[in-house]
Amino acid sequence: MYAQQVKSTGARVKSLEEMDAQERAFQERIDAGIKIEPKDWMPEGYRKTLIRQISQHAHSEIVGQLPEGNWITSAPTLDRKAILIAKVQDEAGHGLYLYCAAETLGVSRDQMTKDLLSGKAKYSSIFNYPTLTWADIGAIGWLVDGAAIMNQVPLQRCSFGPYSRAMIRVCKEESFHQRQGYDIMMKLCDGTVEQKEMAQDALNRWWWPSLMMFGPSDNDSVHSAQSMAWKIKQDSNDELRQKFVDQTVPQADYLGLKPPDPDIKWNEARGAYDFGEVDWEEFFRVVKGGGPCNKERLAARNKAWDDGAWFRDGLMAYAATRDARKVAAE
């Protein structure tokens, strides 16, 4: 649902005085809040950072279909089934227009797909966790989409026009997703003892991975400064994580559930919740491929792509013969 590990150029941010005229004009446009459009001049670093971020975001939507798709055939009612299909379909749609936004920067969808399938490109690690019970569908909507919205709302103001506009549309749908997730959780928490246990168990498993969605702690996140200067990124990882915790803890209270963190405590002085430290070892392990489902997710995407080759080739062959026939007829 977003890109959690974007490396930008890594270089120190240049001051306006250090820039040449073209770069300075570019930075001044950004500072004035004017959107950058695909045909405008832009520094290579800006282009590369955006391609990486938007394509990671798109890949996350695509891989994100898998954990929830796992429950479509077993959704408990006709309404729940329809809602879940619609949600997974939205994700495919987000992937599609994010790929289109990235294409405006001069990279093809085929290339991006190749990078995803080879394991070269990253996607959000949250999707490397398995969905074990129906409550996981609720928890994903509530927590994962909740965290995604937190990340994406600022991206609506991103300096790159196509990405910003895509985010405006995506955010509308994501907030519907979050509500449907919370609605599933409410039903479970109002239900039988077993259903409530299922809900608590899902919260236990999805809580920390959701906090990890905001990326490494600011102390370890060295690449943010340039992205912030370019208005690709607007808030720091830790600021967003704090916001998420502050929003989510009362929602858990309302459900009668407890996040699995004994250190959660309201801090009157800060006007925010204190909370425990994320297991960063786990975070980096899963990013690097050591999560419970990394292998399965990539295998599923590769299988879909490989099994579908004859279908894509068949359509291309038809289009080619039809064009040839047309030419022959003329």
């Binding site: 798709g69 006709l78 089934k81 599609l96 299988k303 099994d307 579908g308």
Partner: peptide, 27 residues
């Protein structure tokens, strides 16, 4: 609906989900 996320191309994921949604609605 079981094709969601496993179709040969993204546009087909979306189209099949549409068909499945229509059919579940009619159900």
């Amino acid at each position: 609906a079981a094709w969601c996320g496993h179709a040969p191309v993204l546009e087909e994921d979306i189209a099949l989900a549409n068909t499945a949604l229509d059919l579940i609605g009619q159900t």
